[in-house]
Each structure stands twice: as C-alpha cells, then as structure tokens.
Write a protein that binds this DNA or RNA. Structure first.
Lengths: 281, 281
DNA sequence: AGCGGGGATACCCCCGAGGTATCGGGAGCC
DNA sequence: GGCTCCCGATACCTCGGGGGTATCCCCGCT
C-alpha cells in the first residue's frame, strides 16, 4: 500500500464524502473515487458503504482508518525527523514539547541539568496547547515531550516518571465552600454557583455542559477570582496563585504524574541525554 | 514520502549496494539509483556517501533508516490487519503469538479464561521463534503477544504484567557443581566443562563464543543431560525436567517477567477481552 | 415527473517509474 | 602506467497508470 492511497482513504473516511475529500486533497472527484475503488479491490474488502448521503465506513474500513492514521503519522515522522537531522549537520537540536504554562519550574531544572552535561546539544522548547504533545511526538514534530498522566495518552511511547502530585480545588477566597478542610470531586462539581470550566478537546471543540469555555490558566484563574467558576488543578499550580483565591484539597481526585516521553525507537543522543538528565533530577 | 521510496531506501541501506538492492527488489539498477538520488534531492540531504565499494549511510541516512523501518512496519501492519478483518466479516479471529515451548501452562489458563467470557471471539495461537513476537506485533501479523522481559523489546507497546519468576541454572545431575546451594551468573558461566549455549539472534545468526549453537528447549535439555552444557532458564522450566538434570538457584540473574502486550492504538474487542482475561488470572 | 446532490464511468493526456545501453571513475594488479 | 573490474550515474526510450473533463446513473425529495 502506498501512502498516497492511505492519505486518500483517510480523507474520504474523515469527510464521509468523496467530493469534499477531493477538494481537501486538491484534486478532482473522479480520480479519488477510482483510487478508493481500486484500494478496495486490491484489499479485497469493502471499506465504505455508499449511501445516498455519502460514504459510511464499514467495520473493516474502521480498522484501516485506525491503523492507517498511525502508519501515516509514522511516515510523516520519518520524513520530518530526517529533514531536521539534515538541517543542522551533526548537531541538530532536539525538540522538546510541553503544555504551555505548566511545569515551568521542573522544565527549567531539567534544561539546566541537561545543559550542564558534557556534549549537550541545543534544545528547542515548543509550547503547544494541552493534549498536542503526544501528537507532535507521534508525527515527528517533537523528539521528547513532557506529558501528564492520566490526561495525556501515553501509549506507544517510552516514559519515565518525573513527579507525582495531588490535585486541589481552586475557588474564590470569599466563597462559603472555601473554608472546607477537604472535599470530594463530586462535591466540588456540585457547588451551585461555581461551575467547573470546560476545556477544549484536541479538535478545538468544547464538550457540552454548564461551565464556561476556557483555553488557559490565566483566563480560568481570573474567572475564579471573579467568583464565576472553580477549577481543579495540580498542587503545583499553587505557585502561580495571587490573592483572592482559596485552595481546598480534594480527597479522591486522581493523582497527576508528570512524565518525560520519547518515541520507542529513538536513537538520538540528545533525547538520551535529556532523559538521563530527567532521571537524575 | 511514498512507501515505495522508503522500501527502496531501506533496501539500499541494508545492502549497502545499489545492484544487490535492485536485485532484491526485483528491478534494474539504474531506476533504483535515480530513485535514491531523487529522494535525496527532495529531502535536501545526502543519505549516502558513494564509495568505490558501494553506498555507506550518513548520519542523516541512519535517522531515516530507523524511522523508515518503523514507518514501513506500521504501513504493513495497517494492510495486514485490514486484510484479516476483511476475511472473516464481523468475527475475525484475534492472533496471539508466543515463544514456541514457553509459558504453556499460563497460556492454557489464559485461553480457557478468555474462552469462558461471553462474546469471546476465536483466538489463533501462533508459536514463533524467540524474539519474533514483537516484530509480528509491530507489522500486523499478530494482535497480542506474550513477551518476556528483559529479553523482548517491549517499547512501543501497551503491556500488562502476568507473572515474575527467578532464573535457575540447569545442569547434569552427576556434575560436581550440581550440589551447590546457589550460584552467581558469573560462576555459572565459568564452569569449565559446561559452556552455556548460544541462542540465535533475530536474523538467525549466532554470536561468537564457546558454547553449542541451539534452537530450542528440547535440544538444550538433551545436551545438558549428556553433560555437554548447562543453561540458565526461568524457574517454570522445572515443570518440563526429567531425570538426569539438576537445578541450582542463581542469586543475581535478572528476574523474568511474563507480559501480555498489544499495539497501543488497538481497538479490537478480541484484544481487549484477552487482556481483561489475562489481568484477571 | 422533475430536480438536485453524490458517486461511478468513459475517455483522454501526460508525467514519471522502469527498462536497456552506455559512460565515468576509483581500486587493484601485473 | 595501463589494463581491467566493479561500482554508481547518465542518456534515452517506453508504457502504464494517475489525474483531468464531461457525462451518466441512481436515489431521495418536493
């Protein structure tokens, strides 16, 4: 199977519509129709059922979509990492990605510790929106990532644990609930006038619910200070708190583990060095 | 990048010789030369240095070889799993692979436990030579594998631990060393007339050394019984021992962990069921 | 029945992958 | 030094298939 075929298939599967997929791919509809038909013939399987509305995936098609996406990401990663290795002969920088605005203290320690090693290579730090770190690692835009369990999908990577912490509820300091010694997650979610905010999923859309739609920590803390929301955060967020905010420990929130992750077959000396430095923190 | 280009590149990199690579690929040498040159041009990097003897990988080329192999395996996996899903619409069997001749008791328990679940799907068991399980999982020939740490490379898979055991030295029962209460690995390797056997690597070749070349457990136990070798095995191998063999515990051999492993993005109900059954053992 | 949206077919073109023949150049070898 | 292998690279040709335009066919909706 050629990657071109896979790209075509994934486009049609995602759009559920040959015409739209063709547009997205920058080509005409008929050759795309033919390519899909040919792929089905070669695999000896129906990947779609043709409905009057468009194309619907079959079970077999679903399998190919899952596997094909992973395969395409691997091919992209191969190309990107090769290009990056070519740019700076010998001493190509290693790209580390982390969630914008989190773990800054730990990251600083890590970068300092690694930079002090003999033969340390340059490290490009790329801050990206929550949840994108794993994607970047999978498709070769990054070489190492700082991830957070249980929020990030760690599967398929090699990881080392760096730190584990409890989560706490942040709420406006004047609020009656702010005097509680501790709380459960259920209780925190049920405070009547303080809804928990909603965070965007990977595609940028928001789940349904009552809470405000928010993108970053600064926003949410401001809203909490205004008495319009409360939020569950890892304990280390305490470092960023100003006046007007109260902290209540949560008894049953999942512990958050900060991890350093890298692709399993990585042979880069820079990655190995960073991981070693992280382990020694 | 197309998979065809990647396949060509990997062939040339492995053969270090355009002519031989072309032969292996079933094509003529010139188009392959051109394809490689074109790939280098498109990536804007030298992947090989041309020597009078053939082609030698550059550092950049090394990167592409590592990443490219993984990418090709992923594409192959996508195609194979799709084909398998197509063969048996709805109820395609899940393929489980394990090392020939090991863990038979544990496997039997696992298969029984899973078969007892409601909605259990058929399980094809594929026994393959040691070390091949991870490869089969990577390229889609299998869906689940029984692996053994630290022997198998587990990176890139999701795993659950099933059991951990010590390793022991097996030697002929008449031998003077057989009366020891315990031993270190170094001592076991230094017994003068009882060399440790050599096992084949993934490509079928044997490492250099004094011990006999062996392929399977039956062979090696026979040789031990004849007083020509000794061997380090997990404790569970005791179950298969007949007369004429003595067992000495090793104090510093690494513990062997039996794992169930599956590809991280697996969505197969059969895989999930097997893993669940394994966890409940 | 008429129409509109969506995929499939028919037919054509041309790019590029692959083949054969040949070249150029480095390494050994008398 | 010149001869000869043994490489990979170039030149040149062929042809299949991927991509384009025009059009068809089918189905659902009004």
């Amino acid at each position: 199977m050629e990657t071109r075929e896979l790209r075509y298939f994934v486009a049609v599967a995602e759009e559920a519509h040959v015409g739209r997929a063709a547009e997205r791919l920058g080509m005409a509809q008929p050759p795309l129709s033919r390519a899909i038909a040919q792929l089905e013939r070669r695999l000896g399987a129906d990947l779609f059922v043709r409905t009057p509305r468009g194309m619907a995936l079959t079970g077999v098609g679903r399998t190919l979509l899952d596997e094909g996406r992973a395969a395409l990401a691997a091919v992209e990663a191969a190309e990107r990492r090769t290009r990056r290795a070519a740019e700076a002969p010998g001493r190509a920088p290693v790209v580390l990605t982390a969630k914008a605005g989190a773990s800054s203290e730990l990251m600083a320690k890590l970068l300092d510790a690694y930079a002090a090693e003999p033969g340390a290579v340059a490290v490009d730090v790329v801050l990206s929106p929550p949840g994108h770190q794993a994607l970047m690692l999978r498709d070769g835009r990054a070489d190492v990532a700082i991830l957070h369990r249980p929020f990030d999908d760690v599967s398929g990577f090699d990881v080392d644990e760096l730190a584990t912490e409890e989560q706490v509820l942040i709420l406006p300091s004047g609020h009656p609930a702010s005097t509680s010694r501790s709380m459960t997650v259920a209780e925190a979610g049920a405070i009547p006038d303080l809804p928990l905010p909603r965070w965007p999923s990977l595609d940028g859309s928001y789940p349904d619910g009552p809470g405000p739609e928010l993108r970053d920590l600064t926003q949410v803390l401001q809203l909490v200070r205004l008495g319009r929301a409360s939020v569950v955060l890892p304990e280390s967020a305490r470092a960023n708190l100003r006046d007007g905010l109260a902290v209540v420990p949560l008894t049953d929130a999942p512990r958050v583990t900060t991890l350093i992750a890298w692709p399993p077959h990585s042979t880069s000396a820079g990655v190995a060095g960073l991981v070693r430095a992280a382990g020694a923190l």
